Simulated assay, not measured.
Amino acid sequence: MELVCPAGTPAALRAAVEAGAHTVYCGFADETNARNFPGLNFSREEMAAGIDFAHDRGAKVLVAINTFPRAGAQDLWHRAVADAAAAGADAVILADIGLLAHAAERHPGLRLHLSVQAAAANPDAINLYAQAFGVRRVVLPRVLTVEEIAAINRETEVETEVFVFGGLCVMAEGRCSLSSYATGLSPNMNGVCSPASHVAYAETAKGQEARLGGFLIHRTARGAPVPYPTLCKGCFTSGDQTGHIFEDPVSLDATRLIPALRKAGVSALKIEGRQRSRAYVTQVVRAFRAAVEAAERGDPMPEGLLTRLTEGQAATTGAYAKTWR
């Protein structure tokens, strides 16, 4: 299976390739990219140089142009697709239907991947994107079990790519109405469900509090770790239960499921984390390259190698097991 690794900077791209990534994904330093954070991403010159660096070492580069164009400003997104193609990108990762149509018409030789932001989670939706726009691969949202992924692969010829490590979203990807309500920012347009500009921490008489957009998400005892306030990992009261109703504030680690995902027909394994450091990227890529090679040999999966890099130093298989369904 192809190992698809994050690169938020040129240094991270080089680190990922040198650590054993088959493929790296990255984005331009503008709003066409759903991780458009200060200090991250690539200029046009850096993107071309990064693609050359990867190709010289046998790796591929995918360019994420995965936000939804603003009305009247679509030329910015059109230029991003053209510039990615001109730089030699192996594929572009798109979510917007209009942008997919534009890319298919104007750049017929460019390979198109469907972003997780499109939230295509069934064969009918996936096959529509393939038939209408020639999409070759879909990044599946993190709301499916291994069995559901296998069922999808039986009904489509489109390659499937799934997340195996990093941040965990348990909502329809990019469409979290809770987050949009709390912050006034769309994850599809602004690229993050819990923007740091809307996060606040405070010491109160009741304990340490973490808020998002003014809403209390976590309250912990003094001196205890305070999780980052992400809505789907917040504390709620439902009936007579109070706690993490959807998912605990931990990271996804599906290392032990790699053989099952391989058997389910998954083509590529994706690591989340374009906002992470090159040191983080190096460690995670090396660990997963070893795991992929172990799966190919039929060896047991290594476990626990990346625990200290996870949120709260704890991990989950999340929706793959669907313990919260």
Rank of each mutant, 00 (worst) to 15 (best):
L212N: 11
L110Y: 04
Q241Y: 15
R79K: 08
C169Y: 04
F236S: 06
L110V: 02
W324C: 07
F288T: 10
R57D: 09
M1S: 12
L306S: 06
C5V: 10
A101K: 05
A89R: 05
T9R: 12
A319S: 07
T255I: 15
E296K: 06
Y129T: 03
V139F: 13
Q313S: 14
R70N: 04
K60I: 07
R106C: 00
R308L: 09
Y320L: 06
G318Q: 10
W324P: 05
A64F: 06
V4D: 10
E157P: 08
I51A: 09
D90R: 05
A196L: 11
A254Y: 04
T316W: 05
M47E: 02
V285I: 11
A264G: 14
G174W: 01
P141L: 00
Y320M: 01
P227Q: 03
M1D: 03
A295D: 13
A104W: 00
P69S: 03
M301C: 02
A268M: 08
S179V: 06
D240C: 03
H107G: 04
D56N: 11
D75V: 05
S179G: 05
T183W: 08
A260K: 14
C232P: 01
P141D: 00
L99R: 01
L3M: 12
A279G: 05
E247M: 11
K60D: 10
T204Q: 06
T310K: 06
S186I: 05
A260N: 07
Y201I: 02
T317V: 13
Y201A: 15
L3K: 12
R35Q: 03
N41E: 08
R106K: 13
P6M: 09
K322L: 10
E247I: 14
G109W: 03
E2C: 01
A151H: 11
E155K: 15
A54L: 09
H244L: 02
C5P: 08
Q208D: 07
T145R: 13
T204F: 05
D96S: 09
R44H: 11
H218W: 06
G58E: 14
S251Y: 05
V250E: 01
S194K: 04
L252R: 01
I271M: 05
V162H: 06
E161M: 07
R35M: 05
P108E: 00
E296Q: 15
P225K: 00
P141S: 00
L100N: 12
L40S: 01
A59T: 10
P187E: 02
A150V: 01
L114T: 07
T282S: 15
G39L: 04
A290P: 10
F37D: 05
C176N: 12
L40Y: 10
I51V: 08
V61Q: 02
E157Y: 07
I258G: 12
H102T: 00
E159V: 13
E45D: 13
G166H: 09
A121Q: 11
I51Q: 11
G167R: 08
E18K: 08
T67W: 00
L99M: 13
L306F: 07
S179M: 08
P38K: 03
A15I: 09
V146I: 15
C176S: 04
